[in-house]
């Protein structure tokens, strides 16, 4: 139950045409086409925010982290509980980020560092176990209710687009934050000394260590960064997605799809893949609603046929 078999459960057999109402479908006019384009971009950018942490941990440290979705959930719950305590989402996020960084460092120090040298299956087993542990802890600490987080007053409005449709400003703000973060990550990895060490560490751990760089600390930092990114995504997504049990499982699978399409460990690849998936999913739902569940996976299959290593090489 924790890992949804996305897009397969309870679906009608795919080969049965099911278009009783297709004659009613009116063609999309230009305005709506652009709005859907915006929807796809916006969804893609949100996906990127969750997936970039996964691609860092997976690509640089070589860890298959199934618990990544749990960090997303933990972020959302932290945002909710701190926001209801302080009454301010921005403050809750500022307080929450150091907490999640600490959580990431602690987990790396206690558990994950014993996995680097091991087979992927051990990693899968442990991180799957962590999903169960986090779900149970979440249930004990925060309960099983669905919670809402208010959109900050400053961003609460909507921009009218057509006579009956408006676009929530908060969603646009998320897109901007995602773009800024993508730029920041690029700068960190490509332009800073730390980024140089990260890139070197992903290529040859022993050599970097021999050059006198504290690779253990470096890995702890990368892992904490990955956790914080996922949790941050949960925090800023909380007002639009609500906060509910098991919410991480939904994003986990699609994040793995993003990472695989984008190329494992590539931040740019993750960005491009997220946007591609956002667009595929959006237009898939509207144009071929019967096949909405498979459109993103079809995209993944096609990309893998064309470029088995993903769109971009690592880093």
């Amino acid at each position: 139950m924790f890992i949804p078999r996305a897009g397969t459960r309870g679906q009608a057999p795919l080969l049965i045409p099911h278009n009783r109402d297709s004659e009613e479908t009116r063609p999309m006019d230009t305005a709506f086409f652009f709005i859907q384009l915006l929807n796809g971009l916006q969804y893609g950018l949100l996906l990127f925010l969750v997936a970039c942490g996964l691609t860092l941990i997976f690509g640089i440290m070589g860890i298959i982290n199934l618990a990544h979705g749990s960090f997303y959930m933990i972020g959302a719950y932290i945002a909710w509980s701190l926001a209801s305590m302080t009454g301010n989402l921005a403050l809750a996020i500022l307080l929450g980020i150091p907490l999640t960084v600490l959580l990431g460092m602690l987990l790396e120090w206690l558990l994950f560092r014993y996995l680097y040298a091991r087979d992927h299956l051990y990693q899968v087993l442990m991180t799957y176990g962590l999903i169960l542990v986090f779900e149970e802890l979440r249930s004990l600490v925060w309960g099983d209710d669905v919670h809402g987080v208010a959109v900050p007053a400053l961003l609460a409005g909507s921009i009218p687009l057509t006579d009956n449709l408006s676009y929530p400003i908060y969603r646009l703000a998320i897109s901007v934050i995602c773009l800024v973060l993508a730029g920041g990550l690029y700068w960190l990895i490509q332009k800073t000394r730390l980024g140089m060490m990260i890139r070197a560490g992903s290529t040859n751990r022993e050599m970097v260590q021999a050059l006198g760089i504290n690779i253990k600390l470096l890995y702890t930092l990368i892992f904490a960064l990955g956790v914080a990114l996922a949790a941050f995504a949960g925090m800023i997504a909380a007002p639009v997605s609500s906060v509910y049990p098991n919410m991480g499982a939904q994003v986990l699978i699609i994040c793995f799809v993003v990472v695989v399409i984008g190329g494992i460990g590539s931040v740019w690849g993750a960005l491009l893949a997220s946007v591609l998936i956002g667009l595929t999913d959006t237009f898939g739902k509207v144009l071929l609603p019967e096949y909405a569940g498979v459109s993103t996976y079809l995209l993944m299959a096609l990309v893998l046929l064309w470029r088995p290593e993903g769109l971009f090489k690592r880093i």
């Binding site: 709506f32 969804y43 739902k285 019967e290």
Partner: peptide, 19 residues
């Protein structure tokens, strides 16, 4: 209008409703 279970990204379908 259908969404794969249990997805919650409604934006595209809401746009379609407005259309």
């Amino acid at each position: 209008l259908y969404l794969p279970f249990p997805q919650v990204e409604f934006q595209a379908l809401l746009t379609e409703i407005a259309n």
